[in-house]
Amino acid sequence: MSNCLHLAIPAGDLNTAITFYCDVLGCKTGNREEGRWIDIDFWGNELTIHQSEERLPTVRHNVDMGAVAVPHFGIHLPESEFQALKQRIEKAGVPYLDEPYRRFVGTEYEQETFFIEDPNGNVLEMKTMVTPEVMFKVN
């Protein structure tokens, strides 16, 4: 598990957050300190969710698809996993913060993306790219 991203966020109630990340998103748990924090395997990255009272503030920044919430984090998934994730989210009744949207249509950067919030208001952007190999292509 080298070169993985580690991100620690306030999660509100840990049990509620674990249900969201594991039962809805399909992630697995790892190391933990009971009642304080737990590691989530976020598609090969270490997301540490902390028991908390606070929520992170968000603002909106204008991009081509509208004003998106910042800060946010997320994952790039293959198309089939992305569509399966959308189905799990919709089945669980998790509302979209920003509805699925196709960006950069007809270009090598074409992607579908959507935004949701976890139970503590942390914003997640989930996306799939038509040609993921160009993600960091230098123009």
Results as ranks from 00 to 15, higher is better:
residue 35 G to S: 15
residue 94 V to F: 07
residue 16 T to P: 02
residue 21 Y to F: 08
residue 109 Y to V: 01
residue 128 T to M: 07
residue 74 G to D: 11
residue 44 G to Q: 09
residue 103 R to D: 11
residue 79 E to M: 04
residue 122 N to T: 11
residue 51 Q to F: 04
residue 95 P to G: 04
residue 30 G to C: 13
residue 67 A to D: 15
residue 83 Q to Y: 02
residue 59 V to R: 13
residue 32 R to I: 03
residue 59 V to Q: 14
residue 15 N to F: 05
residue 81 E to W: 00
residue 3 N to M: 10
residue 96 Y to E: 06
residue 38 I to R: 06
residue 67 A to V: 05
residue 131 T to V: 13
residue 27 C to M: 04
residue 85 L to F: 03
residue 41 D to T: 01
residue 139 N to F: 02
residue 26 G to V: 05
residue 124 L to E: 11
residue 123 V to Y: 10
residue 2 S to L: 08
residue 60 R to D: 03
residue 109 Y to K: 13
residue 82 F to V: 02
residue 99 E to D: 10
residue 3 N to R: 07
residue 3 N to F: 09
residue 111 Q to S: 13
residue 136 F to R: 06
residue 25 L to D: 04
residue 59 V to S: 14
residue 61 H to G: 02
residue 91 K to W: 05
residue 60 R to T: 13
residue 55 R to T: 15
residue 10 P to C: 00
residue 74 G to R: 12
residue 138 V to Q: 15
residue 40 I to E: 09
residue 32 R to Y: 05
residue 38 I to C: 12
residue 105 V to Y: 03
residue 23 D to Q: 11
residue 129 M to T: 02
residue 118 D to I: 06
residue 42 F to I: 04
residue 119 P to F: 03
residue 138 V to W: 14
residue 68 V to H: 03
residue 35 G to R: 09
residue 125 E to V: 02
residue 3 N to Y: 07
residue 7 L to E: 11
